[in-house]
């Protein structure tokens, strides 16, 4: 009986995992095709679509633009989100719950609604189609992730650690850098990585806020495939996958992903 249940579990697990990675299994091989259309399994082997990337109009500037946007978003969201998360976790004040809910509300609102609302608002402010507009929008939707991570990181935090440091003579700033921050660092870095990834592949909100001069990579791809579905897109997608993997690999190297996401509680 047990054995049967375990094998069913195995089958279900296998299909779920296959479902998860299937897009990669199609996209990555199909970018190496020598044909002029997307096919699976690919026919022939060629790198011509990768060399073709260099000639794709607007691609290089869109990659650079999206990287810049994602990096600045990640940094600012991390700083603001960490401070907000610490404040909510550590202090009791009037309106705390309201602030918490408001800061997390972008998670609950449909992205489409946020996009439209921001377009109207930013047009009024003269920010529509600008880097600043996109940056503000991306910070808005990534801050909830940072706050969530920091709140989770602070949930097991022993307040007496800060008291112990204070009684030994550490000033508040010193306590933050010597005690508080090192202990929530995995949570903060998780927030940074998520912010980067979410900003880097966001379509729905950017859709309303990009302009011809300020074009993000996902929207460039989005616009391109509406006209033609060539293996060039498979090649672009493979590059995007690789870029998204970089931060994850770096963190795996430094911390181990299991620790980062709290799967392993040993914290040093």
């Amino acid at each position: 009986m047990m054995k049967l249940r375990f094998s069913w579990l195995g089958v279900i697990t296998f299909f779920i995992l296959m479902f998860t990675i299937a897009p990669f299994l199609v996209i990555v091989p199909s970018s190496f095709t020598s044909e002029n259309f997307v096919s699976f399994p690919p026919e022939g082997l060629s790198l011509k679509w990768y060399t073709g990337l260099l000639d794709m109009p607007g691609l290089t500037s869109a990659v650079i633009f999206s990287l810049q946007l994602a990096i600045v978003t990640a940094i600012l969201s991390t700083v603001i989100g960490t401070l907000a998360g610490l404040c909510i976790a550590k202090y009791n004040f009037k309106g705390k719950q309201t602030i918490n809910t408001l800061l997390l509300s972008p998670l609950a609102l449909p992205a489409l609604i946020i996009g439209i609302a921001l377009l109207v608002y930013f047009t009024y402010l003269g920010l529509a189609g600008s880097f600043t507009g996109l940056l503000l929008a991306h910070i808005l939707i990534t801050i909830p992730y940072v706050i969530r991570f920091v709140l989770t990181g602070m949930a097991t935090f022993d307040d007496n650690l800060e008291k112990a440091a204070a009684i030994m003579g550490a000033k508040p700033i010193r306590i933050f850098w010597d005690v508080t921050f090192p202990l929530i660092r995995p949570a903060v870095i998780s927030g940074t990585v998520f912010s980067f990834l979410i900003s880097f592949d966001n379509v729905t909100i950017s859709l309303f806020l990009v302009s011809a001069e300020n074009m993000t990579l996902p929207l460039l791809i989005f616009n391109y495939i509406q006209q033609n579905l060539s293996p060039l897109i498979s090649a672009v997608s493979t590059v995007v996958i690789l870029i998204s993997l970089i931060p994850i690999l770096i963190i795996e190297k430094i911390y181990g992903l299991d620790r980062l996401f709290g799967l392993n509680s040993n914290s040093h």
Binding site: N160, I167, G169, A170, L183, H268
Partner: peptide
């Protein structure tokens, strides 16, 4: 508290988990 020159021991031990014993005591 940081100007009072006191020593304190807590019920929860409250050693800094990211520091060694030496670093904790030396802090």
């Amino acid at each position: 508290p940081y100007k009072r020159e006191l020593g304190m021991v807590f019920q929860t031990y409250s050693l800094f988990p990211h520091m060694t014993v030496f670093e904790n005591v030396a802090y």
